[in-house]
Design a binder for these strands. Structure first.
Length: 475
RNA sequence: GGCGGCAUGGCCAAGUGGCUAAGGCGAUGGAUUGCAAAUCCAUUAUUCCCCGGUUCGAAUCCGGGUGCCGCCUCCA
């Protein structure tokens, strides 16, 4: 089975076929760095990471680009004289800092969180401020080809020149006008036209361009320009959160297609929003969590990674603390699968027949790959990994199969990235305590034996007394 | 007002026309244990939000209702 992906543009699952054999070009819409990213943001970035890792698993070279938006989008595009109210500048005023300091600081925070969550570095993380020239070039092209028009220092895209506008989101231009709640902007020929470039002397982040001395880019042009600069006119997959569908991606599609003459992306994939406590997360409820909040509650970043990848990316999933507790328990069990496999490879008890369990492994692999190939069905793939545990506990796995299982488990974890697959080694202190307890047990000195065990428990070491002696694992 | 998504056991989460509705977490009883933990055995949805309909047959399709969520306005 080949990898099938759901394409928001066609509303269908289709086999994924990269334009260039063996290479997938992927662009992910990244964060606007005006604040600390929260667990909702993480979900869509983790989805992008999962996609990239699965493409790699299938043998493709992945050329992945995720932008960093360090120019604030306007909070209100329709008011021409918006007074420079953009999110980055608003935050800068709140913190009494230079807007460039703001974006630098939050970019660093974002990258730190991504690293902690085990997100692989994309090929490039372009910053919008470093591609102003490319944006200007694209805007000029759009003007020259009649898809955009200037009104003073402002430039707007003319949606009437792109009939497919609205296809991605299912919006019709007429409805957009009817549903518009914002003031009519007299400058625009059509209310649905969107800004490519704006000018405002009061703006702090501004650039001198052919459109004026005090300009800054519109909402959507940066992604079109950066995708083109780094991946080419046409790419395989473009991803983002579901909120990006409209207007952001709809506008990208229009301006890129009109500037480049080819469709921007063949496949558009969108991750659903994360809910918290069964609803929208909100600052007033106080459940807009960041990675630090997760860690303060005693969880590791990989627990959150698991929690956010546990559901299919196109279904809305919920985040609650009890769910995190469940995740912790599940992850301990997944870790233990690796522990048990290492134990067998080190000569521990295994099924007499070295090939025992082969069929179980084969079906787990088939189920894992089948799940992921079906539009990244992570729950099915995870179930396949969890199904490996029982045969191991029951001693149904032979030495040869254990070796192959461990190899597969490692590969599978290259995709999920939250399981402890490497062998857990004991240090001298742990060995000594285990020895001390064994000795105390032999002498029936239960107080001393329990003291040693409690000490190990405090160190996160769980002892398991088996008929073959004591074994341990980290918890 | 316009457009769209989702609703499966105590919890999480697959399944989208046909074997006994995956898998996990948890719970209860028993075994085991110096006591625990871990483990093993057994039990834990005759049923898939509600009401109709289509069909030999539906959790899966259609109509209506209810609830939650999203987009249309910055947002992953």
């Amino acid at each position: 089975m080949t990898f099938h992906v759901y394409n928001t543009l066609t509303k269908e699952k289709m086999p994924f076929e990269p334009m260039e054999a063996g290479v997938a070009r992927v662009y992910n819409c990244g964060p606007t760095v005006y604040g600390r990213p929260h667990i909702g943001n993480y979900r869509s970035f983790l989805f992008a990471d999962l996609l990239r890792r699965w493409l790699e698993y299938t043998g493709l070279e992945v050329r992945q680009v995720m932008n960093i938006t360090d120019v604030g989008h306007l909070t209100d595009d329709d008011v021409a004289d918006s007074g420079g109210d953009d999110k980055v500048e608003a935050q800068a005023r709140r913190e009494k800092k230079d807007p460039f300091e703001i974006t630098r600081g939050y970019t660093a925070m974002f990258l730190q969180d991504m690293a902690a969550l085990g997100v692989r570095e994309p090929e490039a993380r372009p910053k919008a401020t470093e591609y102003i020239e490319e944006m200007v070039t694209m805007v000029e092209q759009l003007i020259a080809s009649g898809h955009a028009y200037r009104v003073g220092g402002n430039v707007y895209f003319d949606v009437s020149t792109f009939p497919a506008y609205g296809r991605l989101s299912g919006n019709r231009v007429e409805d957009l006008v009817a549903g518009s709640r914002v003031e009519v902007n007299d400058e625009k020929r059509h209310p649905a036209d969107f800004a490519l470039w704006k000018s405002d002397p009061a703006h702090l982040m501004k650039w001198e361009t052919p459109f004026g001395a005090d300009g800054f880019p519109g909402w959507h042009i940066e992604c079109s320009a950066m995708a083109k600069a780094l991946l080419g006119d046409q790419i395989d997959i473009h991803t983002g959160g579901e909120d990006n569908v409209f207007p952001h991606h709809e506008c990208e599609i229009a301006q890129s297609a009109c500037a480049n003459g080819v469709p921007l992306a063949n496949v558009w994939m969108h991750a659903k929003f994360l809910q918290v406590d069964g609803g929208k997360m909100s600052k007033s409820i106080g459940n807009v969590y960041t990675l630090s909040d997760i860690e303060e509650r005693g969880f590791e970043p990989r627990h959150l990674r698991f929690a956010l990848l546990r559901g299919h990316y196109r279904t809305q999933i919920n985040f609650t603390w009890p769910i995190m507790d469940e995740i912790r328990a599940r992850l301990e069990n997944l870790d233990e699968v690796a522990v048990m496999l290492h134990r067998i490879l080190d000569g521990g008890p295994a099924a007499a027949d070295a090939e025992a369990g082969r069929a179980l492994l084969d079906s787990a692999i088939a189920s894992f790959e089948g799940g992921m190939n079906d539009d990244l069905n992570a729950p099915v793939a995870l179930a396949a990994l969890e199904s490996l545990r029982k045969p191991l506990l029951e001693g149904q796995v032979g030495a040869a199969v254990a070796a192959d299982t461990l190899a597969f488990y490692g590969k599978a974890n290259e995709v999920f990235g939250f399981i402890q697959v490497d062998k857990q080694t004991a240090d001298a202190e742990i060995e000594a305590l285990i020895e001390a307890r064994n000795a105390a047990k032999a002498a029936k000195d239960w107080t001393a034996a329990d003291a040693a065990r409690n000490q190990l428990t405090a160190m996160g070491i769980e002892l398991q007394d088996t008929p073959d002696g004591v074994v341990w694992r980290r918890r």
